[in-house]
Design a protein around this nucleic acid. Sequence first.
DNA 1: CCCATAAGTATCCTTTTTGATACCCTGGCA
DNA 2: TGCCAGGGTATCAAAAAGGATACTTATGGG
Lengths: 121, 121
Amino acid sequence: MEKKEPQLCKVEDTLNILTGKWKPIILFHLLVNGTQRFSELKRAIPGVTRKMLTTHLRELEEQDIVLREVYPQVPPKVEYSITEYGRTIEPILDAMHEWGAKHLEHMNSTEHQERVKEKQS
Amino acid sequence: MEKKEPQLCKVEDTLNILTGKWKPIILFHLLVNGTQRFSELKRAIPGVTRKMLTTHLRELEEQDIVLREVYPQVPPKVEYSITEYGRTIEPILDAMHEWGAKHLEHMNSTEHQERVKEKQS
DNA sequence: CCCATAAGTATCCTTTTTGATACCCTGGCA
DNA sequence: TGCCAGGGTATCAAAAAGGATACTTATGGG
């Protein structure tokens, strides 16, 4: 048991990077579309406010997942991209995607639905 | 882009199962130690309240990750275990653990620390 | 002189999550 | 008779996360 405890914290560290209402979609856009300006991201992510976008991007920057580059000009230009290191998290996102897809199937499977009904009765 | 959007929701579905202050540690204990009574889990997880434990366990049960078995006796006895299906999420936890470990190393690496210092100046 | 622009901050407020605490049930035991 | 156990629920409070809105900044253009 003791030998496994550290495992737990690492899992939680990883989860911390991914949790936040807009973080998965931010990462998704940066991974798929490459470098993006702040306003491009904002437009690409419907519903996000400037504040949340800033907050989450800054957190990702802190974690060295995202790179923030400021061009000293007016009006400002700021570009965001995934760091080389940040790309290493992609396989985990892929794994979650795959598992999530199967999970949905599972939750809709007949056997599962039947068990749900039993409990309701 | 459109073809990738669905990926995102699946990732979020998977994250939903894992997020919650005590969920990783609950899963960890059930995965490592097998079937556990409510009180065993409570004792094994320092700081958790009965309420949070109940809440999270019920959510995991909803998702068919955890099985809850009630023995009709007094005082009550309730056992929790990972479902067969729930075990399929273990590789993802493992992957997160591995990535998390590397992430910690990365964040402590000399190069990273130096970049952090530059920014502070 | 005034406006628009991009990328923010600053304030305040709402919603969601988490936590503290007290109470419930019921059969066996002192 | 009264208390304990185990696994909860109910109620309220605190903390964290998320969101709405207004303000800032400097410069080129009309």
